[in-house]
Design a protein around this nucleic acid. Structure first.
Lengths: 223, 223
DNA sequence: ATACGTTAAGTGATAATGTCACTTAAAACG
DNA sequence: CGTTTTAAGTGACATTATCACTTAACGTAT
C-alpha cells in the first residue's frame, strides 16, 4: 500500500529492522483528515489518541488575556503532538491550543494501542521520545530567541526561511506578529524599514524579498 | 533503609502496587552527592545516566552571546532532568546548562538499566513521561510569561513565592534578573519603586517584604 | 582599624518594543 | 456600486533593555 510506505518513510523508527511489532501498529490505527482552520485541541481538552501527522501542518499557540498570541511551534509531516501525548499519559491541562494551518492527514493511535506498543516496541518508544526531546529543545530555543534576539533579526530570519527572491511570502503582519510573539504595529514598522532600505516589497498580504543578501547580513554568523 | 523510603516517597510511580520491577531499579542505581555551584551539564555534553534528584536543587539556564541569562526551570526533590533523558535517548546537543544551586543528592540510573526498565515497567515509563509533560508545560508557561506578562507582576509573583513578611529573600538583583530573563538595572529600578511605595525593604543581597497584600494585589485574579 | 580589591547596587541617557486609539486603504461581497 | 470586512499605517506614550559609568557595602590582609 502506498500510504503504508509513506508512513514508514516518515516514521522510520516504526520500521526498524529487528522490531516486528513496530509495523503492526499501522494495522491498529486510524487515518483521519482534518480541514484547515480546525482547532485540534484547546486548554482543558481531553485526548484519546496519539497523533502522527502524515501531511499538512498544525500550529500550537498560546494566548494572553489581552488577545496577544504567540506560536510555540508547528507540527509538520513526520511530527507528533507531544502535548497530546503528554496528556495521554499524565492528563494535565493543555496550556496551549492547536490549530490546523492546512488540511491535514493524520494517523490516530488509540490510547490502549499506544500504551501496548510503548511497552512492547523499543523502536516505538524511541520514536515517541525523540519527538519529545525535539520539542523540548525547540521550546528552549524559542525562549532563548524571544528573550535575547532582536526583532529585526528574528524577522529577517523568518523572511529568509519562508520566502526567497522569487517566491513571495503570503501572510499578514498580524500572523507574523503572532509567529514572532510581537505586536502587529511593531512588525509593520519593521517591515516598512526593510522596504525603505529596498530589501523587501510590501503589498497587502504579500511580502517579496528584493535583496536576500542584505537580510542575510543581519543574521549572526552561522554557528 | 531510610533512603529507600525517601526515594519511594519522592517517586511514587516507582513503587506502584502491582509493578514489582519498579522497586528493583533502586538496586541498580548509584547515589551521588554534588556540591553547590557545579555545572552538571553544558551544551554538547554527553550523558550516561538518568538522574533523579533526591534533595537539593538544580537550575537550568540558557545564555545569550552578550552574557545575559535566563533560568528555564529548576529541578528540585522528586524531579528528574528531562534534558538529560532526552539526550539519553536521542543524543542531541544540549541547548542549555545545568548548575547546582545547593549541594544535591541524586540517584543515577545507568543508561542500560534505564532502557531496560523503560521497557519492562509501565510505572517507570509513567514516571519518566510525567516529568517530560510537566517540563513541557512549565516551559510553555514560561514562554507565555516572558512574552506577555509585565515585569512588575512577574517580580511581585517571584517575591511572594520566595519570601514572606518574616522571611526575607537572600539574593542579588543580578540573580533575580536571570531568574526573570530581564536586566539587572531594570530589576533594581523596579525594586526601588516597590521600596518607595513601602512594599519591600532593600539591603545588599536581601529583600524584605513589608506589605504582602499590596504586592498580591498586583497579581491577576487567581484562576 | 585601615586600606584595597571585589561584588552589589544606583543613575542618566538613549534605543528598542509594546500599547492605545485611532485613520486609511484594499479586498470581498451583496 | 456601495457596504462590510480585513489589513495596514500613524502618532503619542509607556515599558523594558542597553551602555557607560558611579557609588556603596563587604571581605580580607596588613
Amino acid at each position: 500500500m502506498e500510504l503504508k510506505n509513506t508512513i514508514l518513510q516518515l516514521f522510520p523508527k516504526l520500521s526498524e529492522a529487528n522490531d516486528a511489532n513496530g509495523i503492526n501498529i499501522l494495522e491498529h490505527c486510524q487515518q483521519m483528515t482534518i480541514p484547515e482552520g480546525t482547532i485540534v485541541f484547546h486548554q482543558g481538552d481531553q485526548c484519546l489518541n496519539y497523533l502522527l501527522i502524515i501531511s499538512g501542518s498544525v500550529k500550537v499557540i498560546t494566548r494572553a488575556e489581552n488577545g496577544r498570541e504567540i506560536v510555540l511551534y508547528h507540527i509538520t509531516s513526520g511530527g507528533s503532538c507531544v502535548l497530546t501525548t503528554s496528556c495521554l499519559i499524565s492528563s494535565e491541562d493543555y496550556p496551549a491550543e492547536g490549530v490546523t494551518e492546512t488540511d491535514i492527514l493524520a494517523l490516530a493511535i488509540p490510547k490502549p494501542i499506544f500504551e501496548k506498543y510503548m511497552g512492547e516496541s523499543k523502536a516505538f518508544r524511541k520514536q515517541v521520545f525523540h519527538s519529545y526531546g525535539d520539542r523540548l529543545i525547540k521550546l528552549i530555543t524559542l525562549v532563548e530567541e524571544i528573550s535575547f534576539a532582536k526583532l529585526d533579526i528574528r524577522l529577517a530570519k523568518y523572511l529568509l526561511t519562508n520566502g526567497s527572491v522569487n517566491t513571495p511570502i503570503r501572510t499578514t503582519h498580524q500572523a507574523l506578529a503572532t509567529e514572532l510573539g510581537s505586536a502587529r504595529e511593531v512588525i509593520s514598522r519593521q517591515l516598512k524599514e526593510f522596504e525603505n532600505k529596498g530589501w523587501v516589497q510590501l503589498n497587502r498580504g504579500k511580502i517579496e524579498i528584493t535583496n536576500h543578501d542584505a537580510l542575510a547580513n543581519l543574521l549572526p554568523a552561522t554557528h
